[in-house]
Every structure is written in C-alpha cells, then in structure tokens.
C-alpha cells in the first residue's frame, strides 16, 4: 500500500540510504502521480546522493512544482556552478535565511565580497557558529579581516 511505501521511504531516509529512497519515491510516484511528498523526497534524496543533475531534471519535469522547489533549483544550479542563473532564480523568490545563505555563497564564488558580507551582516542573529565562519571568510577575502 501507499502507507507501506511511505514507511519504507521514511526508513531509508532515516538510514541515509538515499539511492534506495529515490527508488521507493519513484514507486510511490508510479501509483500516485505528482505526489508532492514523494516528489520532494526524491529531489532531496538525489541532492543528498550527490546526483545534482538528476535532482534538477526531476524538478524541471514536475508539472506543478511546489514553491520550495525554486530554492532546490537555485541550489542545484549553484552546485553546477551556473552562478548567474542561480542568482536570477533566487531573486524571484521570497527571502529567507536559506535563500540569503545561498545568495551569499554564490556572491563569494563570484568574488563579490562586499555584497557577500552585506548579506551575512543582515542575516538573523547567527544560531550557529558556521555562519560566523563564512562571514569571516568573506571579510578575509575582501581584505577586511580587521572587522
């Protein structure tokens, strides 16, 4: 049943068996076409299995992609180093911590350090030290380490 398939999918996710998760998500989708939970699981599992190309083509072949797929798409473009395309995609999205982090990472790669730092300084108070690490990396790269 669909419930059994989702239980199996959930088990694979918990065990970080991402390729298996993709296989079961496909089984769900063959029964329940366009199922958003299965589609979302498939895209995330493909990213976690390092199949960014597969994730992107899954996103793009989905008939009515849910809103958060836009973020996944921008992330995949970033991973493919299609930085301008990724930025364009982000600009059409509602701003969140996730979109801001991704935007700052793209700007870092584009060597636009001042813009990159600007985003870090506008992020909601860092909950994790890693945000500080990236912010400092930007400052160092911009020759503004004293800040």
């Amino acid at each position: 049943s669909l419930e059994d398939l989702f239980a199996s999918l959930n088990r694979h996710i918990e065990r970080s068996e991402f390729e298996e998760a993709v296989r079961v998500a496909d089984q769900v989708l063959s029964i329940s076409r366009g199922d958003e939970d299965a589609l979302r699981c498939k895209v995330v599992a493909l990213v976690k299995a390092d199949d960014v190309d597969g994730a992107l083509s899954t996103i793009r072949s989905s008939k009515s992609p849910p809103a958060d797929f836009r973020f996944f798409e921008a992330y995949c473009l970033y991973r493919q180093n299609k930085l301008d395309e990724a930025l364009q995609s982000l600009k059409s999205q509602e701003r969140s911590s996730a979109t801001m982090l991704l935007e700052s990472q793209i700007l870092f790669r584009l060597n636009k350090m001042d813009a990159c730092i600007d985003i870090y300084q506008n992020l909601p108070k860092p909950k994790i030290e890693s945000v500080e690490v990236n912010s400092v990396a930007g400052l160092v790269a911009a020759g503004r380490a004293s800040e």
Binding site: F6, A7, I13, V44, A45, Y75, Y78, L101, S130, V133
Partner: peptide
Amino acid sequence: NPIVLDLAYNHIDFPSLQHRM
C-alpha cells in the same frame, strides 16, 4: 584561501512523512 562552508545545504530538507504512513 578562505573557506566558505556550504551552509545552504542544511536547508535541503526531507518533508515529514508521519501523516503518510
């Protein structure tokens, strides 16, 4: 070279499947 961590990756999350099982 300064290292930038891929923090955006942490925002690529699985949905909760509790209500589907």
